[in-house]
Every structure is written in C-alpha cells, then in structure tokens.
Design a protein around this nucleic acid. Sequence first.
DNA 1: GTGCTCCTTGAAACCGATTTCATGGTAGCG
DNA 2: CGCTACCATGAAATCGGTTTCAAGGAGCAC
Lengths: 333, 333
Amino acid sequence: MSKTTIQDIARVAGVSKSTVSRVLNGTAAVNPEKKKAVLEAIDRLGFKPNLIASSLAGGRSMTIGVVTQLIGSPFYDTIAQGVVAELHETDYSPIFADGQWQATEELEAIQALMGRRVDGLVLIGGSLPGDEISDLCGDLPTVIVARQFSGRGNICISMDNELGSYQLTKHLIDKGHRKIAVVRGLEHHRDATDRFDGYQRALRDNGIGLDSRLVYQGDFSAESGMAAVDNLLAEKVEFTAVVAANDLTAFGVRLALHHHNVAVPEQVSIVGFDDQLETSFTIPPLTTLRQPAREMGSQASKALLEMIAGNNFSSKVFQGELVLRESVAEIAR
Amino acid sequence: MSKTTIQDIARVAGVSKSTVSRVLNGTAAVNPEKKKAVLEAIDRLGFKPNLIASSLAGGRSMTIGVVTQLIGSPFYDTIAQGVVAELHETDYSPIFADGQWQATEELEAIQALMGRRVDGLVLIGGSLPGDEISDLCGDLPTVIVARQFSGRGNICISMDNELGSYQLTKHLIDKGHRKIAVVRGLEHHRDATDRFDGYQRALRDNGIGLDSRLVYQGDFSAESGMAAVDNLLAEKVEFTAVVAANDLTAFGVRLALHHHNVAVPEQVSIVGFDDQLETSFTIPPLTTLRQPAREMGSQASKALLEMIAGNNFSSKVFQGELVLRESVAEIAR
DNA sequence: GTGCTCCTTGAAACCGATTTCATGGTAGCG
DNA sequence: CGCTACCATGAAATCGGTTTCAAGGAGCAC
C-alpha cells in the first residue's frame, strides 16, 4: 500500500503541500520548475493520492451510487453494464447496493449510498414510490432507469413497453392471427401491465375482442410460459399465436409446445420481448422486441454526469425495435 | 442531504464529539443517560454519519473493490451477483471497476480501486499475470474468482474446468459415442484450454484417438458453434456428438444442425458447459455441466471478509455438476 | 478522612487531502 | 523611481469523523 502522502511529495520536491495539490489538480498556475520537481517526486515515490481524503476535503466523492435489484435478469444486468461502461471513461466509480425488489431493502440501499456521500444515484428498476425517492434524495442528482415515473422532478430513462407490445401484437395480427394468447408478466409490475395494455390496444384497434381464456397470468419466468401452454391446451382453447411477457417466458412457451408436439411456427407463432442474446439461437429463432438495455444504462450515466455538471437533462423514453426472425408464420384468414 | 454532523449531535445532546463517536461505534462504555440523549438527538436530527470522514479517520474504507471484465457473459455476471449479494449483509459496499479483458485496463482498474483505499479486492476473471497482481496488491487482501493461479500467495476461487469437460466427454463415451467433435473456446483462454485438456484425457482414457478434423477452434460465441457445424458438414467429417465450449456455443451448434436438418439428439448429441438459465428450455433441453457461479461469487466475498478479519483462508476449487437433460442419446456401438 | 484505582468524559491531535488567506516578489505603468 | 496590481506560494483552516491522552469523579479499602 502506498503510504506516501502529499506531504512526502512536498518535502522531496521542496515545496509546500498546497503546491503539490495545485499540480495534482491544475487548480492554479505553478512555476514550471517546481511543477517538474513535483511530478518527478510523484513518479519516484510512486505516489497515488488518497481519494478518500480528497473526497472529504473536496466535498465530492467522485462516486456514483447504483441501486440494482439482484435478480439474475439479463435485461437488468445489461443495463448495469451500460452504466458501468459509461462511467469507465470518467473519474467516477460506481458503487453498488442492492434492493432485491423490495421497498425496504431499496430504501436501505439508497441510505447506505448516501452515507457514502455519492455524487449521484442511478436506480435500476425498483419498487420504491417515486415521491419517496424524491424526498429521500432531495437535491442529489438521481436517474431512474427502466422505470417510468409519475413522481416529481425525477429523470427517467425508460422504454415504451406499451408500444413495444402493441407492435408485436400488431405484427401477429398483420400476419393473419386473430386468436392470440398472452402470457402476462409479474402481477402489479408496471412493465407487465404496460405490455398487457399494448396487447389489448392492438386487439381493439383491429376489431378483435379480448378473450379472457387467452390471457394467462405469468411472472416473467420460463415456467410460467410452460404452464400457460399446458393450461391452454388442457382447456382446449384454440390459439394460433402467443405473446409472451418476455423472451424467457417465450422459451417456456416454445418448449411446452414442443412437448405437446405443436409445431412452431407452423401451428403456433410466438413473440417474445427483450431480445436477449440467446433468442437468435433458439429453434426457431425468436421474433421479439429489442430493448436497448446497454444503451439505456449508458444513457443513464450520461444523464447523471450532466446533472452533476449542473446541466439540465430531461427524461428519455426509448422505443424498442421489432426484430423479425422465424418464430412467426403467416396464416390464411 | 443531511448536513448534520457529529458536532451538531454533540451540541444538542450536551456531550462531546468523542462521546457521540463512542455511542456510534460502541468503542467504550458511556453513561446510559447520555447515550440515550445522543440517540435521541441522532434520531431527531436525522443524522447519518459521513462514511467518507469515518473512512479517513478510521483507516478503513469499508469498501470492497470488484474488478469485472464487462463482457455480457451470464457466467461472470452471476459471479458478480454472488459477490454483491454476500456483501449485502455486511457493512461493506462493493465498488466496481472494469478490466475489459485487457491487462492494461485491468491494471488501471486495480489502481483506481486502490486509490479509493478499498479494504479488499475481488478479481473476477481477468488476464493480468498472477505475479503482477501480487506485486500490485502487496498485502491488500485479494481474492481471484473463476481463474486458477500459479502466482504466489493469492487466494483463488475457481472451477475444475478440466474435470468438468472430462465428465461431459466421458458421459458421451459411456453413451456409445466415439466420433466426438469439439468446439474449443477462446484461444489462449485458460478455461478453454483446460476444457480441451479434459476432452482429450477422456478420449485417451477410453482408447479413442484424437482426430484433428473433429476439433474446431471457436471463441465461446454461438456463432463459432454454428461455424463449427457448417465446417464439419462441409468437410463431410462424420461425428455423432459435439462437446461445446460453453452453453452459448452449444446453442449455435444446435441451431446450425437444425438448419442442416440433423436431428438432435437422434443423429447428433450435444453437451454444453455452464448450465445457464436458458439451457433447460432449449429444444431439446441441454445436457451440460453446472458451474456454481453465484456460489463462487459469494464464496469469494466470504473469503475476502475472512482475510480482512485477519483469518486464514485457502483457495477453493469447485467441481461442476453434470446436469443430464435431453440433448444426448445413447447410440449402438 | 485519606489515598488509591478505575471509569467516564472532553480536549486535542490526527487522517490526507483542498482551499482560503496573507505575504513577498515581480511586473506594469505613470 | 514609486506606486499599484497581480501572481505564485506557503501557512493555516477545514472537511467530519476516530483515537489518544489527561483530568475529574466515583468507589473502595485502610
């Protein structure tokens, strides 16, 4: 551990601490010769400034708090990656705390990060009410990713889930499908309800009535996709396509259909949501809606840095991109 | 931002800073009444100690540096999750820096973390030579995950890749396969070479010669799995099974076979490596080797905390677990 | 009642930087 | 040549805690 301090450098270079600090931060002009002496001393002693001390003195910690919800979801993981990657170029370091999709945990996580005097906060997902977040964070720059908010004064980087689901459903309708089953995501989860809304709007816009027998309440898991299919088949409900809550659920749907010897896409078409890495390699490759997860993460970091710099930044809603692959077939009407 | 300091609490409670500090940390006995007064003041003013100041004064930052290699690999991500989850219960917070699988970046990442005076370091993967790590970190407690080391005095939490691959290959042999193709992982990557070694040993132990036409140099991607199959088929090399470098590669293999109308597992069996979430839902569900990624991560945190506490801890090599699903068929000899 | 120890407590030093402030020196200008 | 203005520089205060140290008080034994 480099125990050398700014004081040591000052002594070796024959200047004062103040001067060393000025060289380090370029806060003021210094005599070129002294500057050289300082730099040499730094190099020779292998000095690394103690960021903790500098945080305390400077009032800025150069850290960004990131609150995750540690469910091994590729989507959220990718967002986190984007956040970290974007910060990588800067002098800020991300410091993590986890909320586990539970309000109390999330609150603790935020408080822990604030105790560390982070300069900004990125919340990825989460279940804490918007206003509570505002109260908690006060004037601490805060960005919320993958979540849309009605709360006051928060910046959100989110996805238009309703539209995405609308597009997917519309795509199926355009291909001639009218008996379209849906596997919903986690109950009360905003993303899930938005997607379901998009599904409904697409049906409505095309004069197709909502058939409750085609709606299955899932939870974003593959298992719920399988259960949905088992259920549909057991009940002998006719359907030619399935809108899955996300890709993982679509995997489950697809596997269950396989078990029941239903051909995809010949007999039943499937669409997912997310476009996670594996979807291009399933059989058949899955038609889905790409969420720009990594980009959302890096956008969140960018927004936060702007806010910290004192600039304005407004919320951004991303639109997904329909990725057509082979899991949807056209059918005769 | 709570601007209240320990000084404010002291004033309100009518005691000295020292006493407040003692109440906060329980470092010494305090008069119950004063203690009560202090606690009340803390509660009333909503005081949260400034961890930065306390780090500086206390000499410990209560922070753990985690060096990742930001490739969106589910395996490494899961390890990171394990690390974070385990730390969640403690007063330590993980702070991230990324190495991008490049030695120079990794070096910078480590230095940045040391500048933050982390109390310990977890390296997930990485390419920096072991001795260099030792030099760099000195006596800073350090744990390396998902990597085996010859370097001196480092603690490693790793997987026996050679054995895992041996078991998978052996399983195929037991099922009657003798023409077993292999798609290797990234060149020069230790995990990849270990796995290839395991493959070779299994063949050797069972009197099967190594046929270089059955060996394809991949890179852990799904694309390389597809390319391998295309190649094998184009060259008209006979094979009845494929050992893929990891699950993702196996997905590629499986898709390419599908495109060529080769039935899995009837005509060709496949085994993967990792047991990532999606593998149980592919068609057919993939036989693979489960890596206890999350557990490795949490084990790493545990080890690190022990080391920080001054206790000894030795390296640990995990063994994977063969997960039998439906992608392997028995064939007549 | 005196002397001693033990315990609680506050004052002050300290952690390692940044930043303010005062000073001496130099340059510019009349 | 003298005055002001400015620049570079170091001393000292500061950030918000922890920890050492010495002192005051209580408790106990004689």
